[in-house]
Simulated assay, not measured.
Amino acid sequence: MTDLSVLVVHNRYRSAQPSGEDNVVDQETALLREAGHRVELFERRSDDIATMSLLDKVGVPLRVPYNRAAREAMLARIHAVRPDVVHVHNTFPLMSPAVLDACTTAGIPVVATLHNYTQVCPTGTLYRDGGVCTDCVGRSPLPAVRHGCYRGSSAATVPVALSLLANRRRWWSSVSRFFCISAAQRDTLVAAGMPAELLAVKYNFVPDAGARRIGDGSYLLYLGRLAEEKGLRLLMAAWDEARPGVPLVIAGAGPLQDEVAAWAAERSDVRFVGLVDRAAGRALVADAVAVVAPSVWMETFGLVVVEAAAAGVPSVVAGHGALAELVADGVTGLTHRPGDPASLAEALRRVGPLSPILGAAARSRYEAEFTPRVGLRELVAGYRSVLSDEEVRRGAQAVR
């Protein structure tokens, strides 16, 4: 088999909250097609909820645990496309894990990329009230309902909690291979009870946009979602202590946008630019002394960190989860103690003079591990491994 036929399954996030996950799906799809593989899509868009009738809107949370209509639509799509393999990314909220049953019925092997921790945590973050939370791991997700972990609402949390409870075994029995996007994520999921034999590490890749830093950079940069778990409040506290001698630029949108904008407006060395498109984001990265990613939750990857490395720009990151895996402290960037503003302030003060050397090393690591060439090789190898295992399994069944 030379070229593969792949059916990609993804529920796209709301456009008002841009998602790195959507970007990964788009980039993998384009990469496979450019390499000559046939890729078809089975998609739903969360933006469509806004235009639904009131009755349909009411039905959305009821169908989060299991959507029979999505199962039937998925089965029809499989019959039309006849893929070699199905690659699932996100099924929430308009598909549900019912799409896995369609694959089982059609006898098509499934791989799934795990972009977060939804296999063991209803909200996928392992984060609550400013710190790491494992209250629901390996047990009933009732704590998530009690604390209103999804959107701050117990009622809104019920559907995602029920989905986790009802579908955990469906995922584990229906998916031939899960792609974890970092070794740190894989280790966490294995420790949480997921079958180790189903989990493989496949980093996200980042296209080389050609925007390389010239000189030492003009500012420190935060680029991403403006949310508490991303460490924005930690960064603001650390900045007032650090005063590193270069400005701070903050770009993005999210729940803390108004708070961040007000804080920035009171400081001459901070500039808040709001949500930017990808081209503007790449330009901001290419003129940065360093990118700052102070997440207080355990990131499963760090797309902005790898994008910075591609531009020859180092990162200052929290020393846990995937961020500590992506940044070698003192080699390709600096790490700080998670949740510690004094440690982050010290890293912000130190990074400027080290930036040229750290940035060159970050670029070298990008070339070795995160380019599209490497990403395509690992993605196709993962598909072929699953298909090979499926042939062996079917052969064994035929002999019986």
Rank of each mutant, 00 (worst) to 15 (best):
V85H: 02
M194V: 14
R363P: 08
F272C: 09
P314S: 15
A102F: 02
L326A: 09
P65W: 04
R177M: 09
Y66G: 03
E229I: 14
A264V: 13
V86E: 06
L223T: 13
D329M: 06
A191V: 08
A16P: 00
T335Q: 12
G252N: 05
V276E: 02
R68F: 00
S388D: 13
R128L: 11
R267K: 10
A69Y: 01
P195G: 08
A76N: 13
T2V: 11
A279S: 15
A311R: 06
S153F: 09
A112C: 12
E390K: 03
A253L: 01
L114D: 05
E266A: 15
V158E: 07
S53L: 06
L221F: 01
R363L: 05
H87V: 12
T91N: 11
G20P: 03
R271Q: 09
V380F: 01
P314Q: 14
W172R: 15
V88A: 09
N90H: 14
R365F: 09
D187E: 15
N116C: 14
G224K: 02
A318D: 03
A156R: 14
D208C: 08
E72P: 00
A35N: 07
R384M: 08
S315K: 03
A76Y: 02
L379D: 10
D287T: 14
E259R: 11
C103Y: 08
T51E: 11
P93K: 01
S343N: 11
Y66C: 08
M194Y: 00
M95Q: 15
E28Q: 13
S176E: 12
M236H: 09
A381V: 06
D258W: 00
A283Y: 06
A238I: 13
L94V: 14
V306R: 02
A279W: 03
T2I: 07
V351R: 00
V111R: 12
V39E: 02
A237Q: 15
A183L: 01
G359E: 07
L31T: 03
N116I: 01
I78L: 15
A242K: 08
N23G: 08
V88G: 08
P143Y: 00
P65A: 04
A161I: 10
I78F: 10
F205L: 05
E367W: 03
R139E: 10
A184L: 01
C103G: 14
L54V: 12
G312R: 04
A265C: 08
Q397G: 13
F92R: 13
V317I: 08
A80Y: 03
V392A: 13
N90E: 12
S268H: 04
T113C: 07
V111H: 11
L232G: 11
V305A: 10
A192R: 07
L94Y: 00
G375Q: 05
D240C: 14
H79T: 15
V289A: 11
G215A: 11
D129A: 15
F370D: 02
Y366F: 09
G152M: 05
